[in-house]
Computed example of a mutant assay.
Amino acid sequence: MNKPGWTALLEAIIYGDGGPKYQEAIHVLIEHGADVHLADAKGISPLQHAQSRGFQEISNILMQAGAKQ
């Protein structure tokens, strides 16, 4: 987690465009143990960030992974 309270997963969502490259990056992060429930310093979850940006596919990826964690 960096100084603003973001993980690599959060950065891929916040700085990304939701496209295929970012979807793949999120898959890789999750496969390597990223916690999809770990919120930022303000308490905003990765899923909430993805939904607020309209990233439907990333939201689906996070919900599916969250059900497994």
Rank of each mutant, 00 (worst) to 15 (best):
Q48R: 13
Q64H: 12
H37E: 10
K3N: 13
L10P: 03
I30D: 00
H27K: 13
I26M: 11
A67F: 12
I13L: 08
D17S: 12
I30Q: 02
N2Q: 12
I61R: 06
G5L: 08
Q56D: 12
G33D: 11
L10A: 10
M1G: 15
L9W: 03
W6D: 04
K42E: 14
Q56A: 12
Q69N: 13
R53A: 04
G43E: 06
K21V: 14
I58W: 01
K3L: 13
P20W: 08
N60I: 04
L62D: 01
Q51L: 13
I26L: 12
E57S: 11
Q48N: 09
G16W: 02
G5Q: 10
V28I: 15
P46G: 04
Q69H: 12
R53G: 02
L38I: 10
Q69M: 10
Q64T: 15
Q51G: 05
G54P: 03
L62T: 00
T7I: 11
Y15T: 07
G5D: 08
I44D: 09
I14G: 00
D35F: 05
G19P: 00
Q64I: 14
S59W: 04
F55V: 07
L38Y: 09
P4V: 05
L47S: 02
I44E: 12
Y22I: 03
I13D: 00
G54L: 03
Q69P: 02
